[in-house]
Simulated assay, not measured.
Amino acid sequence: MSKIAFIGAGNMNSAIITGLISNGFTPSDVIVSNPSAGKRQKLASNYNILHTSDNIEAATFADFIVLGVKPYFIADVCQQISSAVNVEEKCFISVAAGCTMSTMEQALGKPCPIIRTMPNTPSQLGLGVTGLFPSPQVSKQQKEQADALMKSVGITKWLTDESEIDNIIAVSGSAPAYFFLFMEAMEKEAIRLGFSAQESRQLIQQTALGAAEMVVQNEEAISTLRENVTSKGGTTQAALTTLIDGGLDKLVSNAMQSAKARAKEMAESNA
C-alpha cells in the first residue's frame, strides 16, 4: 500500500492505525497530524509512526489522506490542504458521518478521488464494520487499497449509492450502542435480582459474547437460533413473549429509522 496520512488522532483514526500496524504495514509509511501533541506523540511512540502538527506536511507526505476530524471541521481541513497540495494526486478517505461527497469536493475545489466511509467503534478491537462509497475519480487500485485499509479493523461493505451511508449508520455505525443499552437494562435487572454489580456485569457480558459467537459459528438464520433455545411454555418463551408484546420489533425499527434520519439531517446541515 502507498503512504497514508491520518488527519486527526481521535478514536477512529487511532483504531485504524492500530489495525494497520498490527497487520504488518510499514510504520515509516504512516504519519498522523494533530494540533495537540499528546495523542499524536502517544501513537508515534506506540507504533513508531511519523507525526506532525502540520496538516499540509502530512498531506504532502501521503498518497492517501484519512480525514478523522469532526464533520464540521472537514471542509476547513480540505480547503487548507487544497491550497497547498495538488489534491488530484491524492485519495481522500473520510471516516466522519454527516459530511457529503459534494461538500468535500466543493472544499477541495475540484473533483478528485474521495471515499466516504462509515466505520463503527468495534473497529478499535479489529471487529468493526465499515461501509464505503467511492467518487467516480477513485481508481481500481485506490479502491483495493482503501478496502485493505479498512479490512485491517474488520469487515467492509461497498455501497452503490452515497445515500446508503445513512443506512450503514443505522444498521452498524450506531448499532453498538443499541446492544449496550439492552445489556445495560439487563445488568440493572440482574442487580435488582440480587447479584452484585461485578457479578451482573460478568454474567451479561459473557452471555452477550456467547450469543454473538453462536451467530458467527452457525449458518442457521438468527430466528432459528432463537427458536432453538425457546422451549414451548418455558421460561425463555415467557420472556420473549413479553418483549414481543411490548413492541420490540417496532421499537428497534423506529430507532434505526431515527438514526438514519439524523444522519441525513447532519449531512444537510454541513452541506
Rank of each mutant, 00 (worst) to 15 (best):
G8K: 06
G247F: 10
A96E: 00
T60K: 07
G173C: 15
Q217K: 13
D249F: 14
I222L: 09
I204P: 01
D29Y: 08
N86Y: 08
G8R: 12
M214C: 03
K42S: 05
K140W: 12
T241R: 06
S123M: 13
Q142T: 05
S231D: 07
L50G: 00
L50A: 10
Q80F: 09
G10N: 13
L50M: 08
Q206E: 13
A44T: 04
D76S: 05
L240C: 09
A263Q: 00
R40G: 02
S123D: 11
I155K: 12
A239M: 08
P27A: 12
A255Q: 08
G173Q: 12
Q202T: 04
A37C: 07
D166N: 14
E187T: 01
N11Q: 15
A59F: 02
M118Q: 03
S22I: 06
M186G: 10
A75Q: 06
A107I: 04
F133D: 04
A44P: 05
I115D: 05
I114F: 03
A97Y: 13
A84V: 06
R226N: 05
P122K: 02
M266N: 00
D161Q: 15
P119M: 01
S33F: 01
I65Q: 01
A97F: 13
I17S: 06
Q202A: 09
V138P: 03
I81K: 04
A238N: 11
S253D: 01
V252D: 11
M214Y: 02
K260G: 00
A9L: 06
L127H: 06
P122M: 08
N11F: 12
Q217R: 07
A212V: 05
S174D: 09
E88C: 04
A146E: 07
I204T: 03
G154L: 10
M104T: 00
V85S: 10
A175R: 00
A75K: 05
P119R: 02
I93L: 13
D29M: 15
M150W: 06
V171K: 08
D161I: 13
S33V: 01
S94T: 12
N23H: 12
I21E: 11
M214N: 00
L243M: 14
A197P: 11
S269N: 07
G98D: 11
I21L: 09
L125G: 10
P27Y: 09
E187F: 00
S253M: 09
P111A: 14
G246W: 11
T156Q: 13
A263P: 01
L108F: 07
I169D: 07
G234F: 05
T130R: 04
S28Y: 13
I169F: 11
L209D: 08
V30T: 01
Q124N: 04
A15C: 08
A190Q: 01
T18N: 08
E164W: 06
N48W: 09
V32E: 11
I7L: 15
A5H: 13
